[in-house]
Amino acid sequence: MRSKKLKVLWLTGIACNGNAHSFLNYPYLAQFMDRFEFLYHPIIESKYTLVDIINQDLECDILLIEGAISIEYKKDTTSIYDIIQKYSSKAQKIVTVGTCASFGGIFRDSGYLGASGLHFDRDIELDDFKNIKSKTISISGCPIHPEVLVNTLYSIREDIKIALDKFLRPKEFFAYTVHNGCTRNEYFEYKIDNHNFGEREGCMFYEHGCQAPYTHGSCNKILWNEVNSKTRVGLQCMGCSEPSFPKSNLFNTKKNMGIPEELPLGVGKRTYLTLAGITKAFNIKRLETRLFND
């Protein structure tokens, strides 16, 4: 292991700081701080001020960008484009931290001219910053999962080659769907579609807009805050790690002739119908009744 600390610049665009706070939930921050040094971070004490970052030309190993970007958006009096240009050329890697920085996310609609992610406007690839694309990794999610970000940074430090999907997301975390590992899976498998909020039982895919079966992410594989996930408690996945986030009407499953408009990744309509017919036939009492609140 290299003993030198890598210099990291955390640059915030049009953002809510949710990723910076989610990062603070990484359980082993002492270890992280032994390996990395923040030139600037929006919350944690850092070696330089933002004004230093803007006015000086500092050595930087990894550039982290949080939030959507726009040529109009300024840090103090300098366009964030200029700051990204300056530091991305010298950084060995650039990481877009969160869905806004990766695809535009919620703040794509913030009103700033052409607000988008660094390389993507939703799923459309952009021409700006194409020259640095080979150095970029996208960690999407609203917010990012701290372990996904930190372990990616550890891999960068160890010069480990990271396999990426077409949106530059590490496959190790984003080849899965959020559905993988959900504790409500049985209700999905056997198509128990009478989900009610406020209960431990039931699957939110059929009525309540759960996007987990077609959203890439590890939410149910690497739990949130080490303890839980949204779908486990009964809140549908909102698809927050995808370029399409946020879609509209997030609490309802859009259906055509009773069939969800979006099906689990790779599943065709006809097979879905066949399978649904079979699973319905199971009629499993255990899954039709409350687990233990009787």
Binding site: C219, W224, V227, N228, K230, V233, G234, L235, C240
Partner: peptide, 21 residues
């Protein structure tokens, strides 16, 4: 997170109560 699934950015409080038991 034990109650609401995750922190930050959960939407577990909904019109009529909370999503979880």
């Amino acid at each position: 997170a034990s109650i609401a699934g995750q922190y930050p950015h959960t939407s577990y409080a909904i019109v009529g109560g909370i999503v979880c038991d």
